[in-house]
Amino acid sequence: MKKIYILCVDDEPEVLQAVEQNIAELEDSFPILTAESSDEARTLVKHIADEGNLLGLVLCDHVMPGDNGVDFLIELDKEDVFYNTRKVLVTGQAGLDATVKAVNEGRLNHYVAKPWQAEELIKIAKDQLTQFVIRSKINPLPYMMSLDAEKLSEYIRTEGIVTDR
């Protein structure tokens, strides 16, 4: 079975740690990777693709040394293997222009303004990963427990992903 990764990108280690802690309950089903820059994130993403695994969700900061987060997300969006990857901007500093660019050119799925609430972030992560599983037409059974079980059941009902045998 292919692994579905979560990638968190932020240049501040404390923030990165906070993001990771907030979504830690997903770790068992979705291994979490962290990167402190767009470059590091690129290496990780390439590794995921090379191993034939999937990237379910990116939680990305905007202002970072080197390439900014929005550019990284737009770049990611262009790659076929990450077509269904859910992209969330977690930032306090992205201006209107950068955010609009992320939405229009990078199909940004969600915007989280810093500072955020822990419950808010985990809920967003679950919603986005649920969408990822559905849109990627993955067998949802292994993920029912950690994600939105109701939506995933509905998906089994309508799409016939699991059938009688």
């Binding site: 079980a149 109701e150 059941s153 509905e154 089994i156 009902r157 016939g160 699991v162 059938t163 009688d164």
Partner: peptide
């Protein structure tokens, strides 16, 4: 199976 999925919701 489809029935079960629906009833789970």
């Amino acid at each position: 199976t489809a029935t079960t999925a629906m009833m789970i919701t």
